[in-house]
Amino acid sequence: MLRKVGFLAVCLLFASQAFGAPLSKQKETLENFSAKAEEFKTNPAINELLADLTKLTDCLAESRVHIKNEDEKPLERNLKKAQVQIRFIDARLNEIAAREEALAAEDIANKSENAAKKLDQEARTLENKVGN
C-alpha cells in the first residue's frame, strides 16, 4: 500500500512539473529531482541500480549546465528524461523491496512447512508408540 502511495507521489510529482514553464520554475523542478536522487542514494537496494542512478545524475548535471546557459528547450527535454528515469528507479526499488519481502515470506513458509512436517512426524511416531 505504502509503495502504491509512493509511486502515486512520483506520478503527481511528474504531473506537477510545469514543462515549458519559466526558467525559475524549471530550476525548482531540478532541485526537487536532485533531492529525489539523493533520497535514492540512501536506499540500500540502490546498489542494484547504480547504472540507472548514474544515468539520472548525469541527466541532472546536464540540466544544471542548461540552466546556467539558459537553454530552455534542452533543459525541458532533460528534465523530462530525468523524471521518467526517477519514476523508473522508484518502481525498481519498490520491485526489489517486494522481491525481498516475497523471498523472506517464502523462507518463513518453507521453514514453517518443514517444522510442521517434522512435528507431524514426531506426533505420528509417538502415536504409533502409544496406539490410537
Binding site: 518502481a91 519498490n94 520491485e95 517486494a98 519481502e101 516475497a102
Partner: peptide
C-alpha cells in the same frame, strides 16, 4: 515491467 514484477512478488508473498 517493473510494476508487473512487483505484482508477481506481491502474489508470491
Amino acid at each position: 515491467v517493473s510494476l508487473l514484477n512487483q505484482k508477481d512478488f506481491q502474489a508470491r508473498k
